[in-house]
């Protein structure tokens, strides 16, 4: 198909995206930063918000938690994706089911179920106490540990599916060839399988990180008082203190970082390869 025709087919999607997403976003930024407040104060506003202790701490927390989540999701997701890429039939369906089904459950429900498990009087602490392994409950909830667990659970499917797609694209003949040439299992993994799934690892890590830095519900519900992420600051400014220019500055910042990461993602994830044209 000619390129301009495919573009034409995308037109309704672009139009919809423009109307329901881009236009309101532009309206919000223009209104809050240029109309409601004095544009000449914009620089001061930017500095005041971005350099505030709360924002700086939130940026550090956001990056740190996103990094922890990305690493955890990768370490958990890689073996699962590997298993899926090498299985068929019932076991494949079962694991896919387990990975995908939570994806269709409300994120709030999923987060609450973790709270039931991890709480002071939750199942895990109760079981440990019944086994006399601990006397006082372990602090499993309302800290970064629980945030990472909750977010990992939510984001795992993105990583697994991205890695699975990459692993399915690996030519099995290459692995046979490596074996035929005398390579041991670990060497095949390190020198052939891992490098060939690398673009999946990078894409998966980027997509998980991008989603992580905008996370709101899970850290708000499962985090402790000081675990404040940027998205939570924005929500608070919009809904509670009604400081919309401040929220706009923070949103603009978060949006820029996200778009920047997407640009990297776009470059790393050879789109043509995803389309299967290479």
């Amino acid at each position: 198909m000619k390129p301009h025709r495919t573009t034409l087919l995308m037109l309704p999607a672009f139009a919809m995206l423009g109307c329901i997403f881009l236009a309101p976003l532009a309206w919000f930024f223009v209104h809050t930063l240029l109309i409601d407040s004095d544009p000449s104060d914009l620089r001061d506003q930017l500095v005041a918000v971005l350099a505030s202790r709360a924002m700086l701490r939130a940026i550090v927390t956001t990056n740190w938690i996103s990094l922890l989540v990305t690493v955890t999701v990768l370490l958990l997701g890689y073996p699962i994706a590997y298993y899926l890429a090498n299985r068929r039939g019932f076991r494949f369906t079962l694991v896919v089911f387990c990975v995908i089904v939570p994806y269709f459950t409300s994120i709030i429900v999923r987060t609450y179920s973790w709270m039931v498990l991890l709480g002071r009087e939750g199942l895990i602490n109760q079981a440990l106490r019944d086994l006399h392994l601990i006397s006082d409950p372990l602090p499993l909830l309302y800290n970064q540990f629980s945030i990472v667990i909750g977010m990992t659970y939510v984001l795992l499917p993105y990583m697994v599916l991205t890695l699975f797609a990459a692993m399915k694209g690996i030519d099995r003949n290459l692995l046979l060839a490596a074996r035929g040439m005398g390579a041991s299992g670990p060497m095949i993994f390190r020198r052939v399988y891992l490098p060939l799934s690398r673009h999946g690892v990078i894409s998966g890590a980027l997509i998980v990180f991008i989603l992580s830095i905008g996370f709101f519900i899970t850290p708000a519900l499962m985090g402790g008082p000081s675990d404040v992420m940027v998205a939570m600051l924005i929500e608070r400014s919009v809904e509670i203190t009604l400081d919309w220019p401040g929220a706009a500055v923070m949103s603009l910042f978060l949006l820029s970082v996200t778009l920047l990461l997407y640009a990297v993602y776009y470059r790393v994830t050879d789109v043509r390869r995803l389309m299967g044209t290479v």
């Binding site: 505030s52 709360a54 600051l233 608070r236 509670i240 009604l242 400081d243």
Partner: peptide, 15 residues
């Protein structure tokens, strides 16, 4: 005073 309290809160929770 809500905005003022909000800013104070943001600082305070980080302590």
């Amino acid at each position: 005073n809500r905005a003022k309290v909000g800013a104070h809160w943001n600082r305070w929770v980080l302590q």
